[in-house]
Design a protein around this nucleic acid. Structure first.
Length: 214
DNA sequence: CGGCTTTGACCCGCGC
DNA sequence: GCGCGGGTCAAAGCCG
């Protein structure tokens, strides 16, 4: 069924990144005509001037319902609806952030929390996914990520999905990376949440200064 | 020695 | 109600 991502929440873009050692990405596609506001809302800071980016990534809107991988990505459990509310500033979010911030006290145990958590689970952070063509899994977006898990994906020929988390102190942004089953060179990167800092904040700017878009 | 990756287990949500 | 799949945690190992 098509159009379920019409909600306009979790957006997906397709990038054609040359197989270089540093396929820095993504963010650069926003200037391909995508609503910057939404991107900013997601934590992707877009240069106000929308200046040209260094990379010549070829971005394509990744919202075609018939697009194989796209469909799969979007129809995953986290699906679009929760992202729709960019005003995730509801009370729930407050609570969840305090919990989320501390993964150790997530929904493990405390049956008391269950009820609340249940709801919260659906109310995740805003997400943003990209499809890139690259030989490397982890796209250098200027932030520092730490891998915290890997999963086998059943209905995929490339059954490995990796989970990353921003290493910055109070930043709870997560990133999910998986290979496209049809084309192992295609990487689907899904960002979740908003960075509470700038990339330069993560590592000493230097080369990343031009990637402040993430 | 510190940080990161790997890997197995646990828990939750959803579909049947 | 049960089973499956997905997401996260935490311990152990590895590397710089």
């Amino acid at each position: 069924m098509e159009g379920n991502q019409g909600a306009g929440s979790s957006r997906c873009y397709l990038l054609d990144v040359p197989p270089v050692s540093r396929p820095s990405v993504a963010a650069h596609q926003m200037e391909f005509g995508y609503p910057k506001e939404s991107l900013q809302g997601l934590g992707f800071v877009v240069p106000p001037h929308g200046g040209p980016f260094l990379l010549s990534t070829d971005a394509v809107p990744f919202t075609n319902p018939t697009a194989t991988c796209c469909e799969k990505t979007i129809s995953d459990p986290w699906s679009n609806e929760e992202v729709g509310t960019s005003d995730s500033k509801d009370p729930n979010d407050q609570t969840s952030s305090s919990k989320d911030g501390d993964n150790s006290c997530r929904w493990r145990g405390s049956s008391l929390e269950k009820g609340k958590v249940k709801v919260k689970r659906k109310m995740r952070e805003p997400r943003f996914c990209f499809q890139t063509r690259s030989d490397v899994d982890v796209l250098d977006d200027g932030y520092k990520w730490r891998k915290y898990g890997q999963k086998v994906v059943k209905n995929s020929l490339h059954p490995s999905r990796s989970y990353y988390r921003c290493t910055h102190n109070n930043c709870r942004v997560k990133k999910r990376v998986e290979r496209l089953s049809e084309d192992c060179r295609m990487v689907i990167t899904t960002y979740e949440g908003r960075h509470t800092h700038s990339p330069c904040d993560d590592e000493n700017s230097s080369e990343h200064e031009c990637f402040s878009s993430f």
